[in-house]
Amino acid sequence: MPRYELALILKAMQRPEIKAVLRRTVETLLERGAVVRELQSLGERTLPYKISKHNMRHTRGGYFLVDFHAAPSEIPSLLDHLERDVDVVRPTVVRKDEQRNVEPCAGLETGLGESRPLHK
């Protein structure tokens, strides 16, 4: 199963409500045969722009990251489910595959970078 990352923006709520929504979401994932690796909270932040969702206008939101493995065929239905959730402002799922054979960046040590300073 490929690895995915769910970037979840919830509406600004109190802690028990947030817990309930997260529990709901992770349970949905597990129901669909997903393997949840990790759950991270990025805290409550101001949204970059105002977002209207479910007839509400949001200026702040709670940011969460869910790292999971799932079958690709399950992703559309999962997104559909999350879109219907009134407490979710914006769900986004992206592929998160491990990169292999990543060569280290040569940086400015070699080549033109050293002889020609970028900033004076």
């Binding site: 817990k19 349970e27 759950l39 991270q40 990025l42």
Partner: peptide
Amino acid sequence: EEAKNFITLENLDQQIEEALDNPKNY
């Protein structure tokens, strides 16, 4: 090795608590 830290129905509440207690900032 990693599977020991995966989230299951049993440790779901605990994991959520932990995540909410330690918000990350990248």
